[in-house]
């Protein structure tokens, strides 16, 4: 069991060290140029291959999971979000799912109940929802903030986001909220995997590796911003070089940055082959993205084929005498 998280942890350390020392040994061009390009390429190709792979599989039946009243008689109130019969309802359902993790939130209902002894019950489950939301949104903000390294001039929306993220105005350089929330949420999700017996039981190495990777990325990023103070001008020169396809390796960037960049590259390259593809899968899940209107509108199965059936004629041939005797109508009376 321990190997399930120790090996991923060791792997992340090792990867960081490889880049850190490699860059120091004059391999900066590899970790700063070649590998990032390869990783992004792997990400794009892998992502597209995976999603088109899913899309290539048929959707033979319309089988949404219905979580509310269906549309039937006009005077019965339909639950348009949880049991949509139109595409606008489906879109709303998907938006709520993607932006608020609505299904995960259902988990938490019990947390607001009172139990038999009339105490408000306590449940970890609400924290799974909170933790997951915090993690994903913080991650999104961090990614968007990083666009300042890939754009010149920096668009005002990115600057605005940055201002919002740094709104607490603590310390110098100013503390970003996302920089606190992301590692905290990731640590929470990790703790759940390690200490909650049931989650630990179902966890695989593939669940720990991305968490450690993201924690590693966050740790290197935070230490560059707040503690070791890397050469921002040089880094921006390099990142701009990458996006404009005229890569350069400025001097004095430091191994820490190469470590950071390498871990990010690994994350990109690893993404399509991993469970992280839930990012794409959530859009395609047939139990969520289909309208519950199968009886109203015919759904076509692309591979529907004819099957042998026991016809009425077979049936009557088999039972004709008995049917006649019982006074049941028959087609042929002999």
């Amino acid at each position: 069991m321990t190997q399930k998280y120790l090996i991923p942890l060791a792997a992340v350390f090792l990867l960081f060290l490889v880049a850190y020392t490699g860059a120091g040994a004059g391999l900066g061009w590899f970790f700063g140029i070649v590998f990032p390009y390869l990783a992004v390429l792997a990400f794009l190709v892998g992502f597209v291959v995976k999603v088109t792979g899913w899309a290539a599989s048929a959707v033979p039946f319309r089988i949404p999971t219905t979580c509310g009243q269906q549309k039937s008689l006009p005077w019965i109130k339909q639950n348009c979000i949880d049991n949509p019969d139109t595409s606008s309802g489906v879109i709303l359902r998907m938006l709520l799912e993607i932006f608020t993790f609505r299904s995960l939130f259902r988990n938490t209902k019990a947390a607001f109940n009172r139990n038999a002894s009339n105490r408000i019950t306590y449940s970890w489950e609400i924290f799974l929802w909170v933790g997951a939301l915090a993690f994903h949104y913080a991650f999104l903000v961090v990614i968007l903030r990083h666009f300042r390294f890939f754009t010149a001039p920096v668009p005002s929306c990115i600057q605005f986001l940055e201002a919002l993220d740094g709104i607490v105005q603590v310390g110098l350089p100013g503390l970003f909220l996302s920089g606190v929330v992301l590692p905290a949420a990731a640590l929470f999700l990790l703790a759940r995997r390690l200490f909650d017996a049931k989650v630990r039981y179902v966890s695989q190495a593939a669940d720990f590796f991305p968490l450690f990777l993201i924690l590693g990325i966050a740790a290197t990023g935070i230490s560059m911003r707040y503690f070791t103070k890397v050469d921002i001008v040089g880094i921006k020169e390099m990142t701009m070089g990458l996006v404009t396809f005229s890569p350069v390796i400025p001097d004095g960037i430091g191994g820490l940055f190469y470590g950071h960049l390498f871990l990010v590259s690994i994350l990109f390259a690893y993404f399509p082959a991993s469970k992280l593809m839930h990012l794409g899968g959530v859009f395609l899940s047939p139990t969520r993205n289909m309208a519950n209107n199968t009886r109203a509108k015919r759904h076509v199965n692309p591979w529907n084929y004819d099957v042998p059936i026991h016809t009425y004629q077979d049936y009557e041939d088999h039972f004709r005498d008995k049917m006649i005797e019982a006074g049941l109508p028959v087609e042929k009376k002999e």
């Binding site: 019990a110 947390a111 109940n113 139990n115 038999a116 019950t121 306590y122 449940s123 909650d196 017996a197 049931k198 630990r200 039981y201």
Partner: peptide, 25 residues
């Protein structure tokens, strides 16, 4: 088993965890 005990031992709504609630009562 330990993985299940974690859930069954939880003091939550009795309808979400009948084994735990009934055992305790």
């Amino acid at each position: 088993p330990a993985q299940s005990a974690k859930i069954l031992g939880k003091d939550v709504d009795r309808f979400d965890n009948p084994v735990g609630a009934v055992t305790r009562e």
